[in-house]
């Protein structure tokens, strides 16, 4: 699958913004992902070549750091907060419910690219726990029943 940054020109632009320095690898990867929401193989190959970093290291970095995705993401990004404050208020059961309703395990995206499910360690909205965040919007104090209503409101 090709990148949506036209002909990798966008990748080259981001590399140039960081001065083409090998030590900027993580920042380049983050910026590329910020534009197209995931890291396609051809973009990674280009970055490795331009920054002169062995592909094996790029492979390790993109799997070591959890911000990176090597597969396309769904239209709606569902983040279930698993922070301690949410955990003690029942986040695990909320996650069970979301998994059941979407048919996804954390890290997965459905074939229709509707939802991507991810867990996060803390969204810093502990007062509202348990919290799920969908496309940047926070839904706080979700009960098991409300989780279902919230998910159903996304098309």
């Amino acid at each position: 699958m090709n990148t949506t940054i036209a002909d990798l020109a966008g990748v080259d632009r981001i590399i140039a913004e960081h001065g083409g320095r090998a030590d900027a690898l993580i920042q380049v990867l983050l910026d590329v992902q910020a534009e197209i929401s995931w890291l396609p193989a051809d973009a990674l190959a280009r970055i490795a070549e331009r920054l002169d970093v062995p592909p094996a290291l790029v492979q390790h970095i993109t799997t070591f750091y959890k911000a990176f995705s090597l597969v396309p993401k769904g239209r709606h990004r569902v983040h279930v907060c698993m922070g301690t404050a949410c955990h003690v208020r029942g986040a695990l059961r909320i996650l069970d419910t979301v998994e059941e309703l979407t048919g996804l395990a954390p890290g997965e995206t459905d074939p229709d690219l509707k939802f991507s499910l991810e867990t996060v360690n803390c969204l810093g909205c502990c007062a509202l726990g348990p919290v799920i965040e969908i496309d940047g919007k926070t839904h706080g104090n979700v009960s098991l029943a409300r989780t279902e209503d919230v998910l159903k409101s996304y098309e």
């Binding site: 993580i26 920042q27 911000a67």
Partner: peptide
């Protein structure tokens, strides 16, 4: 500013520094 890409271990001082150098933390 260096944005951390999601790794708790990078709170450890030497891991943070290797991450800052653009490597695996």
């Amino acid at each position: 500013v260096h944005k951390g890409a999601g790794a708790f271990v990078c709170g450890e001082s030497t891991a943070l520094m290797t991450a800052l150098e653009g490597r695996v933390g």
